[in-house]
């Protein structure tokens, strides 16, 4: 689900900086999109944040959470109906507590969220997040955990001053119909992981338009991160491939073109086109 953001904020950034933010942010988003395979939530969010600063001329955190028990508008990070919201889910073939624990150890998050550089717990419920963009810039924010229900639910939101205002939750459940084992959730068909994420689409209407125009799909990004989460827990790694044969392909192509040219020159004036298909 994507809702466009209505913005009526005050301008508190100089024009030059605003322009720079828009250009830089657009570059970020654009570059992330060109390398879509590596694009994750964090990149998009980051590029987007810069655009927002520029377009809105305003940089300030929104408080509180759409899905929390608190009322909307009352100190929410991403006010209800005011952010891009995505949800996604995956099934992990491990007991519920193990899956929960892997996510709860926040320093594990960068192992499956590709653009997250580092997450560090700085207090009982407070953590510091750093992400690196495709252009090599680092962005950071602090987040607080607002719900930690072991084996069931983790929810967090960014704190005021974040480069990107965001909030999210992860819910863990035994695969339905099985494994309601009563002993702390060791469902024998594994664990369902349901993620909700919201962030303020940078640049409001324009930012949201830009994201769409460039074909970015926040849902696909979170889905890919979740796939990697599952791979990390189930196998300990994310599969990789290496591809260094383009050079060989290029050389072969050139050699074949030269050979073809030689052959057709040699057989001149025969006019038959080479039969390839």
């Amino acid at each position: 689900m994507t809702n466009q953001f209505q913005n009526n904020s005050r301008i508190n950034i100089a024009n030059v900086e605003r322009a720079a933010s828009v250009i830089g942010g657009s570059l970020l988003v654009y570059s992330a999109l060109r390398h879509w395979r590596w694009l994750t939530i964090a990149t998009a969010v980051t590029g987007a944040a810069l655009i927002r600063r520029g377009v809105t001329g305003h940089c300030e955190a929104y408080g509180a959470l759409g899905f929390s028990t608190r009322k909307s508008g009352d100190n929410v990070s991403v006010p209800y109906r005011h952010g891009i919201r995505v949800h996604s889910s995956i099934t992990v073939n491990k007991p519920r507590f193990e899956v929960y624990s892997f996510w709860r150890a926040l320093e594990n998050l960068p192992s499956f969220m590709q653009h997250l550089e580092k997450v560090r717990e700085t207090g009982k419920f407070v953590s510091h997040w750093e992400a690196r963009t495709s252009l090599g810039q680092t962005v950071a924010w602090d987040a607080e955990m607002i719900t930690d229900d072991p084996g069931q639910l983790i929810a967090w939101r960014s704190l005021p001053g974040a480069d990107v205002d965001n909030a999210g939750s992860v819910r863990f459940a035994d695969v339905s119909g099985h494994g309601a084992s009563g002993n702390g959730g060791s469902g024998n068909r594994g664990t369902e992981v349901h993620v909700e994420l919201s962030y303020v689409p940078p640049g409001g209407v324009i930012g949201a338009w830009l994201i769409k125009a460039l074909g970015q799909n926040p849902k696909e990004q979170i889905q890919q991160d979740l796939r990697h989460f599952k791979m990390m827990i189930e196998t300990g790694e994310v599969p990789q491939t290496q591809r260094e044969t383009r050079k060989a392909a290029e050389e072969t192509k050139q050699a074949q073109e030269v050979a073809l040219q030689d052959a057709s020159e040699a057989s001149f004036p025969a006019s038959d086109a080479p039969a390839y298909i």
């Binding site: 790694e237 290496q242 260094e244 050079k247 074949q256």
Partner: peptide
């Protein structure tokens, strides 16, 4: 399509611990 060749390419390396 219908065009394969034997080429000189870089050797593979270990990327993951498994």
């Amino acid at each position: 399509t219908k065009n394969v060749s034997v080429a000189d390419v870089p050797e593979p390396t270990i990327l993951n611990q498994r």
